[in-house]
């Protein structure tokens, strides 16, 4: 038996909108730790890892570990029927081939049940080791989204370079080239607007902008985004989910032949 009650149901709606462009079908894993997902895009270039910790739910019952295969577009269709202020409860019985999403209005005057068919998904699970990164950039998520959108009208790839001067996002294409530099800016009274750069050593990596743009769909989950870079590793683009967990996107770099 599984029963997870999330008072801030809009978080689940936002999570779905953030990942459904990247991943079509995925297994949601439920354990004592929390509600999680790990999935790759169809090209195996990007990976998304989601964690919603058990403590973040008002009620969390998961009698035994359960993996539920869901089509994310279908799940998004169902969650779009929940109001933004609704409380969402996810329910499933052991061995069942369906999951139920229950939506309760804040005043408890409307209760809806949506039952969705589960599917068998044969997915690879990758071990992601804890790593030291050469540079970690924390910046406003809206700013990062704007930069990725702006650069993708010029080129297909972005070179992210971190030096002691700041973080530089560069692209070039048929019509020309562009460079955007963000300097460290620790605005004291508005921490959500800060740009903080922790650099062990300079790093410069190239990534496909199409994926970066897709990751920025998670911007509504968090005011800040953290970008972790190392020359030997995929970049990690992380959005914290208020008090509950995170959504992390990993993207393999493009390497010069």
């Amino acid at each position: 038996m599984l029963e997870l009650r999330l008072v801030q149901g809009s978080l689940l709606k936002k999570v779905l909108e953030a990942i459904r462009e990247l991943v079509t079908d995925a297994n949601f894993d439920c354990s004592g730790t929390g509600f999680s997902l790990q999935a790759m895009d169809s090209s195996h270039v990007a990976l998304v890892a989601l964690l919603l910790r058990a403590e973040g739910f008002e009620h969390y019952r998961c009698d035994r570990n359960l993996s539920m295969g869901m089509n994310l577009n279908n799940m998004a269709k169902m969650l779009r029927c929940a109001g933004n202020d609704d409380i969402i409860t996810i329910k499933a019985d052991d061995g069942s081939d369906t999951v139920t999403f229950m939506f309760e209005s804040p005043k408890q005057d409307k209760i809806a049940d949506f039952e969705m068919k589960l599917m068998d998904i044969d997915s690879e699970h990758l071990g992601i080791p804890d790593s030291e990164y050469q540079a970690i950039v924390r910046m406003p998520s809206a700013e990062f989204m704007r930069i990725c959108k702006d650069l993708s009208s010029i080129g297909d790839t972005v070179i992210i370079s971190v030096t002691k001067e700041g973080v530089k996002f560069s692209t070039s294409g048929e019509i020309g080239s562009a460079n955007i530099v963000c300097r460290q800016n620790q605005t004291v009274d508005k921490p959500e607007e800060a740009t903080v750069i922790e650099m062990q050593e300079p790093v410069s990596l190239t990534f496909a902008l199409r994926y970066m743009n897709s990751f920025t769909k998670a911007s509504s989950l968090s005011d800040q985004v953290t970008i972790s870079l190392s020359s030997e590793l995929p970049v990690v683009v992380e959005y914290k989910i208020a008090e509950m967990g995170y959504i992390r996107f990993y993207l393999a770099p493009k390497i010069e032949e």
């Binding site: 270039v45 992601i128 393999a252 493009k254």
Partner: peptide, 14 residues
């Protein structure tokens, strides 16, 4: 010329 690496070249299956 850049080649796109895959995530599976960095992280292994568990």
């Amino acid at each position: 010329q850049c080649i796109q690496k895959k995530i599976t070249e960095y992280f292994s299956k568990t």
